[in-house]
Simulated assay, not measured.
Amino acid sequence: MSLERLIGRLQAVNDLSPMERDQLLGLPIKLKQFADGEYILREGDTATHCGAVVSGYVFRQKIVGSRSQILALYVPGDIPDLHTLHLPRMDHDLCSVGPSTVAFIPHSDLHSLLTSSAPLTHVFWRDTLTDGAVFREWVAVLGTLSALSRIAHLFCELAFRLEVVGLLRNNSFEFPFTQQNMADACGLSVVHVNRMVQELRSRGLIEWKKGEVLLLNRGELETLAEFNADYLHIDDDTRRI
């Protein structure tokens, strides 16, 4: 049952048949738990498995000089290292933020499945293309939006993605991030992040305490963030409200 979040997310944007669902559920997996800040893969590692996030959060990170830049965030149901099927040598790190559980699938089994199933090959190809679309959005956000809007955008994106996999409850979600994590994701200093979070609170847009974020006015937050979810390529009809 550990791949149910993955299958649910893929089902949200693809018409998976019962046979294709069974094929995915039949993949051999090995579950591993990670602590906050623990590396799943390091730059220079050669991957032999792809990991599906079962619980918690994972981020993609690149160290540039003395600074860490978070390049992407992954939630339950995501496969952050699907690219290693064809590019096995890591050119960045994958880390856990807060505790997480990852289901590892051997490359050999994924290759066999995709060789035998054209529909699933298209499903995973679409997934990697969507990942590229998210990268483009992050570059645009970092390059054009104000600090306040960048942070708002991150909250909006996570809420939308967690909603798809059933992990958004009354506009609230678990968020084990530190302000340093937020700084690394948004290209800001910790001091600047703290000021912007206080600004969002003072405007009555969010609450963030005890590892949980509540979006108090999601529509206004999305306006501030200039958030348009088209880049996630998820039909509104598939969102679990």
Rank of each mutant, 00 (worst) to 15 (best):
R169L: 10
H49A: 09
E199Q: 13
P99Y: 06
N181C: 09
R89T: 09
I40R: 06
R42N: 15
A183M: 01
A52M: 07
S55Q: 14
K62I: 08
M182G: 02
G51I: 10
T115N: 15
T115H: 14
S117G: 10
A72Q: 09
F104G: 05
H49N: 13
L41T: 10
A103E: 03
N171M: 05
T46L: 14
E220S: 04
L110Y: 03
T84C: 00
A35P: 06
A52C: 02
Q61D: 11
T48K: 15
L71D: 01
T48C: 12
S117C: 10
G77P: 09
K209Q: 13
L168T: 11
S66G: 15
D184S: 11
R201A: 07
R150D: 03
V102K: 02
Q61N: 13
L145G: 00
E38F: 05
V75Y: 02
S2F: 13
G56V: 00
A47H: 09
M196F: 00
A12S: 14
H86E: 11
T223V: 11
V134P: 00
G77W: 01
L25C: 08
M1Y: 06
L25W: 06
S66T: 11
E226T: 12
H107A: 10
E20V: 08
R5V: 06
Q11D: 13
L24G: 01
L16D: 06
R240G: 08
R5S: 13
V64P: 01
F175Q: 01
D36N: 15
L214H: 15
D235H: 11
R161D: 06
L6E: 00
R161W: 07
R195G: 07
E137H: 11
P18R: 04
A12F: 05
L82Y: 05
L113N: 04
D91Q: 11
R218L: 10
D78G: 01
V102M: 12
G51C: 10
V191A: 15
G143P: 03
C50E: 06
L27S: 07
N170Q: 15
R150P: 01
P119W: 08
E207I: 06
V165A: 10
V97A: 05
H111D: 14
M90D: 04
Q11C: 03
E222Y: 04
H83I: 05
R201F: 09
S100R: 04
A52I: 05
G51Q: 08
H107V: 08
N171F: 09
M182H: 05
A35T: 12
R9Q: 14
V123D: 08
K209F: 04
V54C: 05
L215Y: 03
T101K: 12
H122G: 12
S117Q: 04
L25M: 14
